[in-house]
Design a protein around this nucleic acid. Sequence first.
DNA 1: CGTTACGTTGAAAGGGTTCAATCCCTGTGG
DNA 2: CCACAGGGATTGAACCCTTTCAACGTAACG
Lengths: 249, 249
Amino acid sequence: MTEMKTAFNASCLNCGLQKICFPTGLDKDEMDRLDAIVQRKAPLQKNQALFSAGDKFSSLYAIRAGVVKVFSFSDSGEEIIHGFYLPGDVVGIDALSSKKHLFNATALDVTSICTLPFEELSELSTKIPHLSSQVLSIMSKEVVEGRLHSELLTKKNADQRIAQFIWSMADRYRSRGYHYLEFRLSILHRDVATYLGLTPETVSRILAKLHNDKIVTWKKKEVSIHNEAALRGLAGLAESDLISCYKVV
Amino acid sequence: MTEMKTAFNASCLNCGLQKICFPTGLDKDEMDRLDAIVQRKAPLQKNQALFSAGDKFSSLYAIRAGVVKVFSFSDSGEEIIHGFYLPGDVVGIDALSSKKHLFNATALDVTSICTLPFEELSELSTKIPHLSSQVLSIMSKEVVEGRLHSELLTKKNADQRIAQFIWSMADRYRSRGYHYLEFRLSILHRDVATYLGLTPETVSRILAKLHNDKIVTWKKKEVSIHNEAALRGLAGLAESDLISCYKVV
DNA sequence: CGTTACGTTGAAAGGGTTCAATCCCTGTGG
DNA sequence: CCACAGGGATTGAACCCTTTCAACGTAACG
């Protein structure tokens, strides 16, 4: 029990996700003060909700380990998945204006969370200017993410969507310093389909193709990328980086 | 010349968009201080850029009159349209984290802009707390907007997309106190198609159908909604309001 | 009055969905 | 330890919505 407590009680200062997560750019002292307001509770179990649509907004949540999906329901009751959040990501920031959550967030696996009570965070922000710009920065990244997702939905066919999805997951793991050519991904194929605006059948067929072509294998919860270049090529991404905003004439 | 200057130099205090735009919720004194940093220049002409991808981020822009489209280009050079912004809307907020614009914004018609230099706005925010929450609020609405757009792209067919688009435009005009069953819309059908992830041909065909069915007519730049209920029905929207996050069992 | 860009209309083609059957894993209980 | 249930994944075949391609119409502007 003791070691478990230690496990989810480590401070930001000791956290391997410092460079990715909220405290980026804070000095030691500032990080200590941030640490003081961060709440770390027992991990969420699989399928446990972090928050639900309609809940009062009170905190932001930084993911320490695991995966969280953010979703809502269409008027006809279909699930709409807006994103998957990995260690170092922050969820809940979309509720700022409405003061209550408009979306649902649930753990797809055992997931550790750092809770940042927003009241206290705001107050601390007035003393640590960099912290408030950090909130803005996280949110504006969320906007950009959403637009990349729209690009995927409007401009890419099923093969490209899946290739880009897998590649972007790998890339996110890479930027966190994890293995990125082989990793465990606790996301149902069905959820991927929903996220990408496809059917599970289509995802299944394309994954079979990617496996045959020895580009990517995703069996059970294990992803292996065998041909990184081919995957990037399929995804239809530019050579240099993820987003290209300049017109290619 | 004098009257023209007056036209685009009216203060927030006199602006009809107070309730919609940035100053919402500020008292008279606060609004005056905001006013002091707002810059109002000559209107943009049609197709003139407000900013372009790659530009240094320095200001937010509130639209006083006209329409602005925000867009980028895919790796293959296709235009991706992320949104259309109407009077009272704020654009440029997505550039906060990267300190430079990742998207393009151009006027689709003669468009008046209020420029809010971000440095000064931040500084003022430290003195007017409500102002900083205003920035957060605008940005989180942007996130929610993006997700509604994703919902449209993943869950709706062409008819529903177009119905929802027209409906949402009408709704936005309505909330601004403008005529909403008949209005001028300076957006090319082609741009609508791009925004909705469709082809111009499909948009054309569906608009013809809507016209035949006496639901909506959109000829030249004039939109007339003849059957509001039918339009909402086609859009597949819930009875009450635009966004439904609770599962319909 | 011609040029150019936007819009319309038709016919054909295709990518993804839909529907249905089957398989496979995991967890559960006898 | 095995049987069984149930949710997820797979596979095939038919279908359909949207795209594609091509031709034509039309409005705006010099």
